[in-house]
């Protein structure tokens, strides 16, 4: 195990919160897990599954 160099000065911690501050919209979104769940299911359901199945459904049936 090597000896460490002189430790750098500890940077001030940034994990304290000021609850009086207005919560940014992005943080509100990221803290709303059920909204994220809706987004995470709806986006692939529409763009991948439903769009894809619709394309297959529109293939003409061979005579």
């Amino acid at each position: 195990m090597a000896e460490p160099d002189q430790p750098e000065e500890q940077a001030p911690s940034t994990d304290t919160e000021d609850h009086a501050e207005k919560i940014p919209a992005m943080q509100s979104l990221l803290d709303n897990h059920f909204l994220l769940l809706f987004i995470g299911v709806a986006v692939p359901a529409v763009l991948y599954t439903i769009w894809g199945v619709m394309e297959v459904a529109h293939i003409p049936i061979a005579n």
Binding site: G40, P44, G52, V56
Partner: peptide, 21 residues
């Protein structure tokens, strides 16, 4: 968040040579 929105769509790479899509 980028994972939540977009990662699942990568499933399509298995179908890149499928006809009809």
């Amino acid at each position: 968040l980028l994972y939540i929105c977009f990662l699942l769509l990568a499933s399509a790479h298995h179908l890149l040579v499928d006809p009809g899509i």
